[in-house]
Nucleic acid binder design. Structure first.
Length: 158
DNA sequence: GCCAACGTTGGC
DNA sequence: GCCAACGTTGGC
């Protein structure tokens, strides 16, 4: 059976946008800075190489799914937790027993058009999607294959 | 282990 | 900028 899963990765575009990812060498970057245990557990335990994710711009006027990415590495220690000058520094984490992990992600493509949050809210087939669940604040979470395909289809319809 | 206080996320 | 809905921390 296939182990490919689908995910949504949220990012504030003023912090790190899909354009920023596209500008990286190899269109690849460590998805680091995750400091939530549930999100970490997803990255560490449930994600797999080859999984696909949608890239969502949060906390901006134009909240929308804007692109597709692929998970291209296993989980490994997030180096920012060891850097005292980093905003993601965790003094309780040690190199022997790192608390936080990341994976490398690679941009696949822009969506044909952004799929705005309000469109997703209005789509009956996405009523159960975690992205529109009340109180959801996770920045990394799984979505179903059906939800994933529905959002991509919406990007074609505009 | 409980829970109040605090910090953060993110839509609005 | 506001604030609801969380998650985390730390005193007890």
């Amino acid at each position: 059976m296939s182990s490919i899963r689908h995910w949504i990765l949220k990012s504030e575009p003023t912090e790190y946008s899909f354009d920023d990812l596209m500008a990286e060498e190899g269109q690849t970057t460590p998805w680091d800075g995750i400091r939530n245990y549930q999100a970490r557990n997803f990255i560490r335990d449930t994600m797999g190489i080859g999984d696909e994710a949608l890239f969502y711009h949060s906390s901006t006027k134009h909240r929308a799914v804007v692109g597709r990415v692929e998970i291209v590495s296993a989980a490994y220690a997030d180096s920012t937790q060891f850097e005292p000058e980093s905003r993601y520094f965790d003094p309780k984490s040690t190199r022997e027993n790192p608390r936080w992990v990341c994976r490398d992600v690679r941009a696949v493509a822009w969506l044909e058009r952004p799929v705005r949050l309000e469109q997703i809210r209005a789509a009956p087939e996405l009523a159960g999607c975690t992205l529109v669940a009340r109180g959801n604040r996770l920045s990394v979470f799984p979505i179903t294959d059906v939800e994933y395909e529905a959002i991509i289809a919406m990007s074609h319809r505009g």
